[in-house]
Amino acid sequence: MRKFSWSLVIVLLASLVFAACAAPVAAPTAPAAESAGGEAAGGGAAAPLRIAIIMPSSITDVAWSQSMYTGLKAVQAEMGGEAAMQISYTENMFNVADAATAIRDYAVDGNDIVIAHGTQYGNAMFDVAVEFPETTFAWGTAIDTGADKGLSNVFAYEAQAQEGGYVNGVIAALMGDSDTIGVVGPVEAGDAKLYIDGFVEGVKATKPDMQVNVSYTGSFGDTALAAEAANTHNKAGAKVLTGSAQQVVGAIGVAAENGVYWLGTQSDQSPLAPEWVVANQLYDWTGVIKDMIAKREAGTVGGTAYSLTLNDGLVIQFNDQAPIPDEVRAAAEKAIEDIKSGAITPLK
């Protein structure tokens, strides 16, 4: 018996520490009465709007999760800070069962908007959304707002990642002096696949003879394998690399060490290698967030599927510290205009 109880104590202690950092950080527990009122009124004038988000990685992942967190912070600042909008978040929810619990907890706690920031959270979120029709839910990468399930309180969002991927591909084709480009992919699906397919198309449209080598690590977080993949691409002759998901921090380090250009996506990855990250496709979710808030205040708690495009929400950010020739930048800007005007539709 003695043995068993000690094990339990240890596991409990460990999970406490784990929970301490995975748990909502900025969530001041509002009194139950107040939160119930806020829920019914959809965030009245006095009570701050409360948004909660569940993320598969961390707010500093330099990728997917960070893009949404940055958007939330920007909207918060614009609305007038903590007094107007409160953000609660739970990070590193790679376990969907834990995420399901967090989604429910946030809904029970009276948050106005609960964002499940991962395709994998869809089923769990829909289950909770049925029970809390007054609460707004949002999830992505997704286009399903649950209308066929009779739900009207769910927003969905996605990024047309192939658009910026195409532009990054144009830049990659023109940078460097090699005939090979390497792609460090995570899992061959969803947002990453869109980005990579668009990227390859952009390269081929610019230089049809360019060799584009694509590899996948099979994981979003295998930083070590992603770094080795970058090494391998470099050995195979690639002088320009790109990749997706939070695993790329390792690959970007390798790119910098080997003197190879990097094209980023999802978030600003320049700080990781200021001289080698040429450009980033940024996901700017502020428009989506503001529209959800506006709709909710107007009485519509869900039902829209948002899509970031270069016309609205996707931004190609050039890194001023990395040397990018004028003609490359001009070609990239032309590609952006062509996609915006519809002259080019990547992956069509």
Binding site: W6, L13, A14, V17, F18, A20, A22
Partner: peptide
Amino acid sequence: ISGIGLTLFGLGLSSL
């Protein structure tokens, strides 16, 4: 069990 506990502890504490 204590090893799993130690893993969770290290994962949480290093992130924190």
